[in-house]
Every structure is written in C-alpha cells, then in structure tokens.
Design a binder for these strands. Sequence first.
DNA 1: CGCAGTATTGAAATTTCTCAAGCCGAGTGG
DNA 2: CCACTCGGCTTGAGAAATTTCAATACTGCG
Lengths: 248, 248
Amino acid sequence: MSRYAAETPVSKVHECLVEKLNRHRPLSPADSAALARLKPRVHVLSRRADIVRQGDHPDTAVFVMDGMLGRYHTLAGGDRQYLSFHVAGDLPDIQSLFLTTMDHSLCAMDKAKIALLPHEQLIEIMRRRPTVCFAFWRLTLADAAIFRQAITNLGSRTAIARVAHFFCEQTQRARQSGLSDGNSCHLPLSQEELGQALGLSVVSVNRTMQVLRRQGLVEFRGQRLTIKNWGRLAAVGGFDPSYLYDAE
Amino acid sequence: MSRYAAETPVSKVHECLVEKLNRHRPLSPADSAALARLKPRVHVLSRRADIVRQGDHPDTAVFVMDGMLGRYHTLAGGDRQYLSFHVAGDLPDIQSLFLTTMDHSLCAMDKAKIALLPHEQLIEIMRRRPTVCFAFWRLTLADAAIFRQAITNLGSRTAIARVAHFFCEQTQRARQSGLSDGNSCHLPLSQEELGQALGLSVVSVNRTMQVLRRQGLVEFRGQRLTIKNWGRLAAVGGFDPSYLYDAE
DNA sequence: CGCAGTATTGAAATTTCTCAAGCCGAGTGG
DNA sequence: CCACTCGGCTTGAGAAATTTCAATACTGCG
C-alpha cells in the first residue's frame, strides 16, 4: 500500500481536488494554497472492500482517485440497497464531517484508489476560507440532487425506464468527470448490484437489459457500458441531465 | 398578506431560526446577532400553492413557520413524485443558495406560513461566520440522509413496509420539531399524495392503510396520523431513526 | 341540498418476483 | 492441455404484488 502511496504523490491529490472544487466555486490562489497543506493518505482497495460502515465515526473524508465506489444501506434482513456510485474526483462521504455517525456504508465496486482527507484539517481550512467551504458544501448539494433523482427513478418509473435512466446518468457523470469518450463508460457492476441499486431482481435487470440491447439502445459487456442511441435511451428513461450540477 | 407579516414579527423568525441552527451547531451570541440582521419577509400560502418551481432561480430561501410544505419532481407526463415533506423549523430549499436552478418544485401541502430569507444576506453572514455556515450546511446534510432513506424505502420495501416506514418517519420528525404529542402528528396529505410520495397507486395506499389500521398499528383520519403501536409499526417498516440527525 | 374531492371496493390486467435449472467464460489444478 | 469450478448471466414458468379500470360511498362545505 505504501507502494501505491509513493506512486500517487500528494501533489496529484491536491491538483485533482482543487480542479474539482474549482468547478463548484472558483478558488483563489490562496484557497488552493490552503488546500495544499492537507496531508492525505492514499489507499488502494480491492473489489468489494468496505471503506466505512454504517454506524462508523470516520475522522477522514474519502476522495476518489481511481475506480468506482458505492454507497449502500444494509437492511435488517441483510439485503443491500445501493444509494449512489462514485468515480474519480468525487467525494462520496464528505457529509461525515458533520454527520458524524455514518447512516450508510461505502465500498469499492472495483479495484479503487482513494485519498483520505483528515476531517480536522478540512474543518480548519474551511473555517478560514469561506469559498473553500462553499465549494465543498456545493458538492454535497449536487450529491443530494442525484439522490432526489434516484427517488423519482425508483418511485415513478417502470423497470425499463429505470435502467435506461440509470445508464444515462452514469454515462453523463462519467463524461463530466472526463472519464468517458462520449458514449461509453466503465461500469463495474454485476446485474445483481444493478438490481440492488434500482430496486429490481436480477432476473428483471437481465430481461430489461435484453430489451434495451435488442432495440439497439445500449450494449453492456465486460464492465463497459456503451450507449448506441442516446436520444432514444434518454427518451425511454425520461432523462434530463439538468439535475447534474456540474460534475459529482 | 401584510396582515400576517404584522402578526409574525421578524424577531420570532429570528428566534426560531437560531433555535434550529443551534441544534446543528452551537452558535455564539455573535452568530445569533449576525442572523438578527436578516430581513425576512413572511408569506401565507394556501393549500397546493407552489412556492418555487422546477427551473426557477430563487433569490431567497424558505424557512417554514407553520404548516407543511412538499418538494416534488414533475415528470414528462405531468406525474408528480414527492421527494420530502417539511414542517415548522425546516429550511426546505437552502440548497438553492448554491444550486441556483431548482431541480424540483416546492409547494404548500396545507395552508402554510413561511419566511423568505434573502440569499445575499445569508451568504454575507456565512462568509464571516463559519459556524453559521456549518450549521446551515449540516441542515442540508441531514436532509440528504432523509433522501437516502427514501431511496431505500422505495427500492427495497413492500407497500406495507413503505407506508409504515413513512408514518414512523413523519411522526418522529414531528416529534423532533416539537409538533407531536408523542404518538400522533398532523399530516395533511390525501391518499393520492401519499401514493405520489411512496411510489404506490391510490388504491394500494388505501388497502395498505386498511391493513395497518385493522392490525391496530395506526389510525389516520382528518389529517391526523396516530400511531397506536409504535413498536410493531417500526418493525413492519424496518424503521431505525438513527438517520434522522436531530431535527429537519 | 348538492357538488367536488376523497375514500373505498371489486375484479381483471400487468408487472415484477421467485424458484429452479442450464449456460458460459475465466481461472485453476491435475 | 483439459476437466473442473465458480461467479455471473440467461431462460422458463408459475406465483405474488401492485396497478388499472370502473363503480360506489362518504364528507365537508357553499
């Protein structure tokens, strides 16, 4: 693990973080300099590894450097409901700064690389620099907008529309994070995990995807999602990207 | 309307707001004094009135003084998906400070009284007072935790469990806002609106509630929800209140 | 009284799930 | 190099949950 830490210099973490925040609120050089004082620790995770668990009290926040993470609730019976997925540049558990007990877990969907940012240092910076604070805050707000869409997706759409909407969202977000060539993106989820995100059984996910595939709308093989007909897929899913406030 | 403004002095708004924020982050007297400089406008709304609509760019934030508000998405076909409901003390659209285009609408479920807090003044205060900023931020984070629960409710639970969970949540939140005698709360929603929040048809809501009623778990008449057997209702709904970070 | 909106009921239609079996491809050990 | 195994994908068919449609009560209010 220290191997990887060496491969990912702190300066790289700083650079990515500033770029991300900057998209939410323009940072001054002084803001950026303040962030440079963060001492992140870089970790590499294997597929399925939990990073934080429901009930934990983390004292660092996760910044995704590479790979995909997922947030999920664990139900009484052990079932899992995925809440959202996150890619490089996202900060999937910044809320833990103020919501000190985790109400959900965070895990790697894939081999992933993350940087851990100490809460204490973040708070200290934000206390002095309102713009940095606003930028982080806005990140969490963009996140909430995605949760709201998920509510609507689960509450109001049929299986087909749900899957279509989800595929549109993932691709669009990958694009905004510079991780997509436009119509395809890396999506390391099994049909079972897709089902746990979309409130569908594996069987339904499978059949639904077959329809989308046969209609020539998408292709999904080997962890790569390719959208063949964006217009029709968006129409099927009722997808309107205006809720995706910039990246994240 | 100016009538009502007169009936609700600004000092009252300030007092409620400080109390609310204080529960999320302890405010200093100076913080409170800064907030006292806010110039809120008070409005009274009638049932079903929209306050802000999807696509709007509000320049004020809503603080609920009385009644119940709801947030909702409007789908292509005109269908509505309610995202959350809010009572006195809540700030249901603070996110509009930074997410300047509304991704959803806000309406009164009931006759309601609200105070409008100008964005500009809020930003100005928060720029100088990190603690106030943190308090508002945390409010939005608690909100997001509720959205996450809604995702799980819609994605993983049966109709009965969904309704049960929703009833538990509403009552618990009313309690935390000091609006419940413990086992009952005001809930001015029709079965149709309940369905639009829970992803169920009116008919299903109706039959589901009959089951809960017949089993002696709840009663819901005349806009008053009464929980007769908290333990069993929570069990049916898989309700665990730990995601309700204080009020809001 | 009578309207409008809301609640309730029955029954058929539809969607989605569950169960259970078979398949396929990648990695492994003989 | 092949048989074997494992996880994930696919299929079929019956079961279950939920929706839709359509008709019938109920209730508060002008």
